[in-house]
């Protein structure tokens, strides 16, 4: 689970305190980057989008009021919107760069479902899931958000996030198993 961002840090960052901003950045960047990477499937795009999330955060931080919604959830909302916009703009491609490069047929049977998962295999598998299931799995197990934070970020109830979590993991398990069977 990721460490919750201190509300004082947020307030100070909102007032332009650079050390507070640095702390926010250091704390949230890895999770955000990973979420965006698994969302868009492209390292460079994920890097750019992570920067953009922080730029937008900086612009909007002054107006952020920590009422009812966790800061992390708010940040992931921005990230998710950016990812959606990015994917919409890439709709012409109809696919993601990594997806074609990491089909299990190319990789061989070098992974096992519950061990040795690498990011490329995970990207391919996650992109076969429905959007909501994918978001929940990535936010929970890659970015490390709690059920409550995921629910806030996705505007869902905690119960529906739990359901999406189980269905997403089940679908992912079946997918990885079928790939493994094909390759063996």
């Amino acid at each position: 689970m990721i460490e919750a961002v201190n509300s004082e840090t947020i307030t100070r960052a909102g007032k332009g305190d650079t050390s507070a901003l640095s702390r926010l950045y250091e704390q949230c960047r890895p999770g955000l980057f990973r979420f965006l990477f698994y969302r868009v499937g492209d390292l460079h795009a994920a890097e750019d989008l992570t920067s953009e999330v922080f730029l937008r955060m900086l612009r909007a931080l002054e107006r952020y009021r920590p009422q009812g919604i966790a800061f992390e959830a708010w940040l992931y909302q921005i990230a998710r919107n950016l990812a959606i916009d990015y994917q919409r703009s890439l709709r012409n491609r109809n696919h993601l760069p990594l997806e074609e490069a990491v089909l299990p047929g190319d990789e061989g049977a070098e992974y096992v479902v519950d061990r040795h998962l690498n990011s490329q295999v995970l990207v391919s598998a996650l992109h076969k899931l429905g959007e909501e299931q994918r978001d929940v799995v990535v936010l929970r197990f890659v970015s490390g958000l709690s059920i409550t934070q995921v629910a806030q970020a996705l505007h869902k109830t905690e119960d529906s996030v739990k359901a999406l979590q189980r269905r997403g993991l089940s679908a992912l398990r079946e997918l990885l198993k079928s790939w493994e069977d094909e390759d063996v």
């Binding site: 640095s22 990973r34 390292l43 994920a46 479902v113 990011s119 799995v137 197990f141 398990r173």
Partner: peptide, 29 residues
């Protein structure tokens, strides 16, 4: 198997931003 998979995902090697990208970030202590 779902719990194992979730643990596997948590423990997998996930990508990190490249160094060049990290260097672009301003104002860090």
């Amino acid at each position: 198997s779902l719990i194992k998979l979730a643990t596997g995902i948590r423990q997998a090697r996930h990508p990190l931003p490249q160094k060049a990208f990290q260097a672009r970030v301003p104002a860090r202590n």
